[in-house]
Amino acid sequence: MIRYILGRLASIALTFFVVSVIVFLMMHAVPGGPFDGNDMPVSAEVKAKLNANLGLDKPLYVQYLNYMGGVLRLDFGVPFQSPGETVLQLLGRAWPPSLILGGAGVLIGAPLGILLGMAAALNRNSWIDYLASAFATLGLTIPVFVTSMMLILVFAVWLNWLPASGWGKPHSWVLPILAYATIPMATYARYTRSAMLDVLNKPFVTVLRAKGLPERRIIFQHVLRNASLAMVTVFLPMFIGTATGSIFVEAMFRVPGLGAYFVSSIEQRDYPLEMALILIVTLMFCFAYLISDIAYALLNPRIRFGGGEK
């Protein structure tokens, strides 16, 4: 197991390197630079001076090495769009709202979705199943900005219970979190339903019934444990995907989160912020997959003890 984990860590390092090269090249392959915008017309000499100050006149590989050298020392540079702070300071300011939004959304949406999916699978082809599936499909197909608008209309405009936007007090968090929670809920519900049904149709479930095990034990010990094998590899990475929040939900409710910076850093050629965001998200996904693969191996004796399926 330790060998396996060490091997995986090495491959994460390689992934990190490859992603950094590709993203760096793509970033610079886009024509234009940070000072080409029309809102900030500067003369050619000034532009050359600014570029030289930021080291943007050097060959690409030198720029790359300079930046990555900083990254290894946890220095992600200074964002062009907010030169008064470092990239890390900007992230420290903008990430928490996104984390709260995404984290709370998943913590509320995932258990609800799992329960919904279980209820649907255990009552398949009944009205419970149809209702849960319809609910999940709606959650996936209605764009989140429409959900947001409806929540604002009902709870802020008609009922006047909650503020329509902002991020000041905790009660202003409720609507964006609810809007966001519909996405993980719907996704988890669909995955849980299909994973459970898949196991329920296996012959060993009939055997468990034939040997007189109570249905409750069959479901909670055997079916859930087997279904979780299929679920764990999907759910953990999905969890990480939410850590960056949602650009749309943040925009709808005017949450001062990270979402807007993802867009603006690309638009404004804010190279240090763009690189930092992508590298950090890459690392988070790599570790999420590593953890879910370890969890999968621990849950599945066929992997733990070697030897494939016969």
């Binding site: 060993f204 009939t206 055997h222 004796p301 066929r302």
Partner: peptide
């Protein structure tokens, strides 16, 4: 399982793999 027990056709799929 107590009064009546049953054994099945394919023993490979009859046990819970985990």
């Amino acid at each position: 399982g107590s009064v009546a027990a049953m054994i099945f056709q394919d023993p490979m799929t009859a046990f819970d793999p985990v």
